[in-house]
Simulated scan of single mutants.
Amino acid sequence: MSTESPSYFDHLETLSTHHLLAGMNSVDQTVPQAVAKALPQLEALVEATVARLGKGGRLFYIGAGTSGRLGVLDASECPPTFGVPHGVVVGLIAGGDTAIRKAVENAEDDAEQAWRDLEAYNINDQDIVVGIAASGRTPYVIGGLEQARKHGLATGCIVCNAGSAVAAAAEFPVEVVTGPEFVTGSTRLKAGTAQKLALNMLTTATFIRLGRVKGNKMVDMQLSNAKLVDRGERMLMDELGIEQDAAATLLRQHGSVRAALDAQKH
């Protein structure tokens, strides 16, 4: 596995802070290039996801450790960003929610647990399951994907090694091959960054395709703090050519940018 290969750097403990940072930055610059090579695979996964969610299905992430946390993060950001209900995108991590903050010993080695976790959500063949695993060999993810396919669900994955067992278990694999880490085997670094980029692209492209963005603006975002209210007002000002006081009034009346824009059309 290239993610476990020795770092191109050595004697890290002897390096200055400047050289540590410069070294990490130099290898991080290879990550977008690795993601670019996986765009055709990612396109297929987006299309499959759009098809399921467009018919009322859900997107489930399964992962362990850093990969699981990134899935939970991406899922948690979809409702405020795109205004979709909680539960449309669900992140599951080996060891349960406790593992988001604290590692749960051996949780990722249970090949049966992911399907049990998915069954708790009454998962069905309208849904899609995406496994996230830098190594591509996590039993929790492999088992979950295998059971999902057995039950007729669409499956995808995001991995950072070529030819992995996780990719073999998925119908729509995305392989972002990031190579050796700055600290050997520390996949929270380049691999984690690559996974975050891929997840950003997956859900953002999906919800744009599903009509949750207008022009280039998040018209369905939740107005959950002053910054977002201000952003919403500026969207209305730009779209309608009105002053901020009028935009604020419209936003209060209708509760979202999209609703305010729709009201002005009728």
Rank of each mutant, 00 (worst) to 15 (best):
residue 202 L to Q: 12
residue 51 A to N: 15
residue 74 D to T: 09
residue 96 G to C: 13
residue 19 H to M: 10
residue 153 L to I: 03
residue 217 K to G: 02
residue 110 D to K: 01
residue 139 P to L: 02
residue 150 K to P: 06
residue 40 P to V: 06
residue 251 L to W: 12
residue 137 R to S: 01
residue 8 Y to A: 01
residue 113 Q to R: 13
residue 157 C to Y: 01
residue 237 M to A: 05
residue 1 M to K: 07
residue 216 N to K: 02
residue 72 V to A: 08
residue 163 G to T: 05
residue 146 E to W: 04
residue 151 H to R: 14
residue 107 A to R: 07
residue 82 F to D: 11
residue 213 V to S: 05
residue 9 F to K: 04
residue 247 A to W: 09
residue 203 T to Q: 01
residue 173 P to G: 14
residue 83 G to M: 00
residue 105 E to C: 09
residue 158 I to E: 03
residue 264 Q to I: 10
residue 38 A to H: 05
residue 240 L to W: 11
residue 248 A to L: 07
residue 64 A to D: 12
residue 184 T to G: 14
residue 241 G to P: 10
residue 158 I to P: 00
residue 176 V to Q: 04
residue 48 A to W: 13
residue 262 D to K: 03
residue 146 E to D: 07
residue 56 G to K: 12
residue 259 A to Q: 00
residue 137 R to Y: 04
residue 47 E to Y: 03
residue 227 K to A: 12
residue 65 G to C: 01
residue 221 M to L: 04
residue 103 A to I: 00
residue 130 V to D: 10
residue 175 E to T: 08
residue 139 P to K: 10
residue 136 G to V: 02
residue 206 T to F: 14
residue 50 V to K: 13
residue 230 D to W: 11
residue 7 S to M: 09
residue 123 I to Y: 08
residue 49 T to E: 10
residue 176 V to S: 08
residue 31 V to W: 08
residue 103 A to R: 13
residue 48 A to I: 12
residue 172 F to Y: 15
residue 197 L to W: 04
residue 137 R to G: 05
residue 114 A to Q: 02
residue 67 S to F: 03
residue 4 E to T: 15
residue 87 G to N: 11
